[in-house]
């Protein structure tokens, strides 16, 4: 039997070669480092890794990271929906500018975004003296860490929603309004159900980055152990303290959080596959 190949198809050998390259790159640069993190954490036994996580400073870092994400992610979800809604559904002056502004955090170095807050709220900054007199701590405390995290993770939800909402157009909202729905009803019954999968995806990405952010948070943290070290910062502290098991145990926990997020997303997608396909047809 003669082998037939369509003109648009690559040679089978080339296809195998390309697939193998892709698989080995993934294995080498993604799977292997991830596996190393876990094996290093468990090098001296499961008990040691658990003990390292039960250390008060490690627990404080976990608590701070979760708290930061719990504040930053809902706020960014709200900002993201509002921004995407305005950009996708309306025509107004400065729309392009707003889109650029939303993308800004992606193009600024995280360390610089942290420094912005130090320059504004630091003791030598614009509001330094008045904040100190009022006994309000912004940088080197929780508010600064949350602000830096919000800034860095700002675009995730909006970026996810803008193309989706632009695609969906505004016919459904117009129909709802013409049938007498109030603005809020239109949003809750029409807009939100249409964007919920995109929103979920944006929130998950935003959350992963919020928990993993290092550079910006490092600048505003002050590195006070047990108080202002988030999990990524605590990993660095432990590594430099010669506590390798502890460092990799905390890193594993961070990686696990990310993996759980991804699995959750895949499970939801798989479970609601029909519905997702339906919203995309709009």
């Amino acid at each position: 039997m003669k082998f037939r190949r369509y003109p648009t198809q690559d040679h089978p050998l080339l296809r195998i070669l390309l697939s193998l390259t892709a698989i080995s790159v993934v294995a080498l640069f993604l799977v292997l480092p991830l596996a190393t993190v876990f094996t290093e954490a468990l090098r001296k036994g499961f008990g040691m890794a658990i003990d390292a996580l039960k250390d008060p400073d490690a627990l404080a870092a976990v608590r701070l990271t979760l708290l930061t994400a719990a504040i930053a992610v809902p706020l960014n979800a709200a900002f993201g929906i509002a921004g995407a809604w305005a950009i996708a559904k309306f025509v107004f002056k400065g729309k392009q500018f707003l889109t650029t502004l939303i993308d800004l955090p992606f193009s600024i170095l995280p360390v610089v975004s942290g420094l912005i807050y130090v320059l504004i709220f630091g003791l030598q900054g614009w509001f330094g003296d008045s904040l100190r007199d009022a006994n309000i701590k912004i940088i080197f405390a929780l508010p600064g860490i949350v602000l830096a995290t919000i800034f860095v993770t700002f675009p995730f939800v909006a970026r996810e929603l803008i193309p989706l909402m632009t695609d969906q157009g505004r016919e459904e909202e117009e129909a709802a309004t013409s049938l007498g729905a109030s603005g809020w009803q239109t949003f809750a019954r029409v807009t939100l159900p249409n964007i919920k999968w995109g929103l979920l995806y944006g929130v998950l990405l935003c959350n992963a980055r919020a928990m993993g952010e290092f550079g910006a948070v490092s600048v505003v943290s002050g590195h006070i152990r047990g108080l202002t070290n988030t999990m990524p910062l605590h990993v660095e502290v432990l590594y430099n303290d010669y506590q390798f098991v502890g460092a990799f145990a905390v890193a594993s926990l961070l990686a696990l959080l990310a993996i759980v997020t991804l699995v959750l997303k895949s499970l939801l997608e798989w479970h609601f596959a029909d519905e997702i396909a339906a919203t995309h047809r709009h």
Binding site: V118, G122, L123, Q124, F140, I224, R225, L227, V237
Partner: peptide, 20 residues
Amino acid sequence: INQSHGGSGAQARAVIDGLD
């Protein structure tokens, strides 16, 4: 007693910027 550690110059800079 809470501790913060880092390069000496960088730590001084943080205190100047308001690390309390």
